[in-house]
Design a protein around this nucleic acid. Structure first.
Lengths: 197, 197
DNA sequence: CGCCACATACCGACCGGTTAGTCTGTCCAC
DNA sequence: GTGGACAGACTAACCGGTCGGTATGTGGCG
């Protein structure tokens, strides 16, 4: 029997990544020791360093997974065949839902960015900027068509919205009164109302 | 001659706190060693532990300073003699300016909260809730008077705005094109426009 | 004025504990 | 029997915090 699945059904690398994600979100990157991760995943350090080059690689994996997912979803919504205000609303609401559904990833993302080495950080920032710019383009499109106000620079509007998305991991609780979809609707509403020409 | 000022003009405790604030903001709490702090402040560990009980106390000092300041300012703006939309706008803009002017404090605040011990964390959260509720009351006042839309729960609006404030430490750069006041005007505008009845 | 008693401010060697990462060895599948 | 998939003991570098000691200042007293 291949050791890669051990007692559990999921292969070791995935299990390590999932465990690390949970622990990083709960305790923070620096407060989580490699020993803790491997124990929780039911393996030893040998296994971890067999699949990952370093503890930091584990963190970077979380980042690239999140970024890839969000970028794909944004591309889909932004490129849809609908009026720009509809496309922006859908994209804005979707990123809220996706963030809430992966709250662990989100809190790691915003809290532990500065733990990455300069090169990896640069890489992440670059990908993030691409995402940012895609979103901004959507707003600018609406401004040019006259359906969105031009009172506020598009850049700032993007940061305004992503600020609230970023903040979700601080206050949103799954057992609270609002479902992810409801929160998403409200936040998208606020954005669209702020943008009314 | 009193040693408290050593070669430098500022007294040792303040110097230690200022140095720690800068380093915590630059590298994060866990990544900053006590040794590093005392070296940068030009003293030794003996001095630090003479004035502070622990490394954590240093962090808590930052928190209580920020919270006290913001609460005072909010109280002043919220209790002013002006229409509610004016008071909200002023308060919303002021917290942006104050945050930008103390960006180090702000990034520590949001990034290192979970590094505080449970008791201290609870204390900080309680103070933060008071602040949150004061702000919410302002919005509810406007909603009751019919000048603000009731489409979005006041709670969520508060989190929406503070999300963007929180996010400032991620993207705002002093050498960017916008002054703190300009950013504050824009963000307050966005909030007020989103709230138009 | 001079001297002693004490407090304050700080130094820096040191301690127990923890950490990320390494390395050698074992075991099983093919 | 060869190579991938791990196990787990080990290391070297730190870490926060402590502690005995010292230099300087201050107030009381004769």
């Amino acid at each position: 029997m291949a050791r890669t699945t051990d007692g559990n059904g999921t292969p070791v690398p995935q299990r390590l990544l999932a465990t690390a994600t949970r622990l990083f979100a709960e305790q923070g990157y620096d407060r989580t020791s490699v020993q803790e991760i491997v124990e929780a995943a039911g393996v030893t350090k040998g296994a971890l360093y067999h699949y990952f080059g370093s503890k930091e690689d584990l963190l970077q994996e979380v980042y690239s997974r999140v970024l890839r997912l969000q970028q794909e979803r944004l591309d889909a919504f932004a490129g849809a065949d609908a009026p720009v205000e509809q496309r922006l609303r859908d994209a804005a609401a979707d990123v809220v839902v996706t963030t809430i559904e992966n709250l662990d990833d989100a809190s790691i993302f915003f809290r532990s960015m500065h733990h990455l080495s300069p090169e990896k950080n640069k890489q992440v920032r670059a990908e993030r900027r691409r995402y940012h710019e895609r979103f901004r383009a959507l707003i600018e499109e609406g401004q040019e068509q006259g359906v969105f106000s031009t009172a506020t620079p598009a850049d700032l509007v993007v940061d305004y919205h992503f600020g609230s998305v970023h903040h979700l991991s601080t206050w949103y609780r799954p057992d609270g009164p609002l479902s992810p979809q409801q929160v998403a609707e409200h936040l998208a509403d606020l954005l669209l109302r702020a943008l009314r020409a």
